[in-house]
Amino acid sequence: MRQKNLKVTAGILIIVAAVFYLIVAGFSTANAAYYLKVSEAINGSVDPGKHYRIEGKIDVTTATFDGKSNPVVLKFQIYDENSPDKRLIVIYNDVKPDNFQEATGAVVEGKFNKDGTFQADNLNLKCPSKYEQADQSQQEGAVTKFLRSLGLKR
């Protein structure tokens, strides 16, 4: 009976230790990234050793893609909508996403190089919603026409 209690106690201690380890690892700052806008990244003092997540609009006219180099290089600029004159050069060493030309913005994750460019490890594009009506002159849907005929919609 005493040996059975010892096994149960040891099992509970192992489970408690594992849960404690997962909690401590979850709060670790090793994977933390500072979230900034482009103007904050340019105006603030950034540390080249820290990991950052930066959001901005993409200037696709400045984008260049070299698919022949090893590794491949996608280079473009991002900027804030409120201050388009402040731009950040982003270097991304991976294939150019298919929807890059249609993207309205991006969130890039990575570190700053010593020359002030941003070396992105991860690139998340923001694309225009396919559910928004692009132009008011588009045809009305059948439901809208029906509601108008009943006088429920103007």
Rank of each mutant, 00 (worst) to 15 (best):
A30K: 02
N31S: 08
N31M: 07
A32N: 04
A32Y: 05
A33P: 01
A33C: 00
Y35G: 00
Y35N: 03
L36C: 10
L36R: 12
L36T: 12
K37W: 08
K37F: 09
V38Y: 12
V38C: 11
V38W: 01
S39Y: 14
S39F: 05
S39N: 15
S39R: 13
E40C: 13
A41Q: 12
I42L: 09
I42M: 15
I42Q: 14
N43I: 11
N43R: 15
G44P: 15
G44I: 08
S45W: 04
S45R: 14
S45H: 11
V46E: 04
V46P: 05
V46Q: 14
V46I: 09
D47A: 05
D47K: 08
D47G: 02
P48N: 03
G49M: 08
K50A: 15
K50Y: 12
H51A: 02
Y52E: 04
R53Y: 02
I54Q: 06
I54K: 05
I54T: 09
I54N: 09
G56Q: 05
K57I: 07
D59I: 14
V60P: 06
V60E: 09
V60R: 06
V60S: 15
T61Q: 10
T62Q: 11
A63H: 11
T64R: 11
T64N: 03
T64L: 02
T64F: 02
F65Y: 15
D66L: 01
D66A: 07
G67W: 00
K68R: 12
K68M: 14
S69W: 01
N70H: 02
N70A: 05
P71G: 03
V72A: 05
L74M: 06
L74K: 03
L74C: 03
L74H: 10
K75D: 08
K75H: 03
K75W: 00
F76G: 00
F76M: 03
Q77P: 00
Q77M: 07
Q77I: 01
I78G: 00
I78N: 00
Y79W: 01
Y79N: 06
D80M: 05
D80R: 06
E81H: 12
E81Y: 07
E81D: 07
N82E: 09
S83M: 13
S83V: 15
P84W: 06
P84Y: 08
D85P: 11
K86W: 02
K86C: 06
R87L: 08
L88H: 10
L88E: 10
V90P: 08
V90D: 04
V90L: 02
V90F: 01
V90T: 03
I91Q: 12
I91L: 11
I91A: 04
Y92A: 07
Y92T: 06
Y92G: 11
N93H: 13
N93Y: 07
N93P: 00
D94P: 01
D94G: 14
V95I: 10
D98M: 10
D98A: 12
D98T: 14
N99M: 15
N99F: 08
N99W: 13
E102N: 06
E102C: 01
A103V: 05
A103G: 04
A103N: 09
